[in-house]
């Protein structure tokens, strides 16, 4: 690179040529090299990612799309039998699919809404000047470091019907025991609580960061205007956090749509069914059950692609809302 240091006339924009060794003024060769570099480097930058992506992301995606149009069984995945849109048509008339879709939505709301609201509240509290500020932040973040497997293991024990700690406490408080696995809503709440537990602290920190970026003068002037603290929170903090809130909503929604590990492990043996009445079977579990327990890979792939399309729709809706918000802002 340092080979040609000769300064040559007619360098484009003629700037700073040879100001430092290694950044020699472009000669004809150099300048061609330079142009080539400008034109091609973007591709070089995205190439590593997209190469891997092609092998480990795109190929599986297209393969499953192709497989979703076939009858394929896990017992012999090599044997494919063209089925057209049969797998998709079957989904539309399948109660289990709609049940899973509804559950995914319900559990998604149950886990996302309290999680983000609590995170917002916590961020507000963390925003005060606190003693041992780092301690509070780290402590609230620890659940995030716990794996789904480890977390669910503990929660299953805590939520045990006959000998669990939660029911023991409820009993002590005079409230009858709850069947956390077999109740329709109690099981959904229990699954959601695992998600909420793991992610609230993390989101609180993201909100806190956004809050700290809000200029103090805004609060000062509002305070001088006599706005109450609550009013300040509603009229300064929340609007300033809008993009961040939107971001967390999008990420949580994606997570909620793909919810899998928590309900699977919460259900114990046969967890893929999401309870005896499929009361907490999410789309992710339904896919898993179809593909890995009933061995209908083709149909599982159709579920996956349907999930994918649903998420694209949600993302498009989110994008529209974001644009609307930006215009208003």
């Amino acid at each position: 690179m340092t080979a040609t240091t000769t300064v040559v006339e007619g360098a484009p924009a003629g700037q700073a040529a040879g100001r430092r060794q290694g950044r020699a003024g472009p000669g004809p060769w150099r300048s061609r090299l330079y142009r080539w570099d400008v034109r091609c480097s973007p591709y070089a930058f995205v190439a590593p990612f997209f190469l891997f992506f092609a092998a480990f992301g795109l190929f599986p995606l297209l393969y499953t799309g192709w497989a979703s149009l076939h009858r394929v069984e896990l017992t012999s995945p090599g044997r494919m039998e063209w089925a057209g849109l049969h797998n998709y048509a079957r989904l539309l008339g399948n109660d289990f699919f709609w049940n899973a879709l509804r559950n995914t939505f319900t559990i998604g709301v149950l886990s996302t809404v309290p999680q983000l609201l609590m995170a917002l509240g916590l961020a507000h509290l963390l925003h005060y000047r606190l003693r041992a500020a780092t301690f509070w932040r780290v402590a609230l973040l620890t659940p995030y470091a716990t794996s789904v497997a480890a977390a669910t293991l503990v929660f299953v024990l805590l939520y045990g019907r006959d000998y669990g700690m939660v029911n023991w406490a409820l009993d002590a408080a005079g409230i009858g025991p709850v069947d956390w696995q077999n109740g329709t809503w109690s099981s959904r709440c229990a699954v959601s609580s695992i998600v909420v537990w793991r992610w609230t602290g993390y989101n609180a920190l993201i909100y806190l960061a956004a809050m700290q970026a809000v200029p103090d003068e805004l609060y000062e002037s509002a305070a001088l205007d006599g706005a109450s603290r609550l009013a300040q929170f509603r009229h300064i903090t929340v609007p300033a956090l809008r993009p961040t809130i939107l971001f967390t909503i999008v990420v949580s929604t994606i997570g909620a749509t793909q919810l899998f590990g928590e309900p699977l492990l919460f259900g114990g043996a046969g967890g893929q069914k999401g309870g005896a009445a499929h009361q907490f079977q999410t789309l992710g579990l339904y896919l898993y059950e179809q593909g890995w327990f009933n061995f209908h890979l083709g149909r599982a792939c159709a579920v996956a692609w349907t999930m994918f399309l649903i998420l694209l729709l949600i993302a498009a809706a989110g994008g529209l809302i974001a644009r609307r918000l930006r215009k208003e802002g």
Partner: peptide, 30 residues
């Protein structure tokens, strides 16, 4: 599915039976 629906979720026996049958139909048909 069928038995726990009756045993643990308190549904009528006939509902549990139907649920089990429906479950099988869904599992068997590729």
């Amino acid at each position: 599915v069928g038995i726990p629906q009756v045993e643990q979720q308190g549904r009528p026996a006939r509902a549990g039976w139907r649920a089990a049958q429906k479950e099988i139909e869904n599992a068997v048909d590729g």
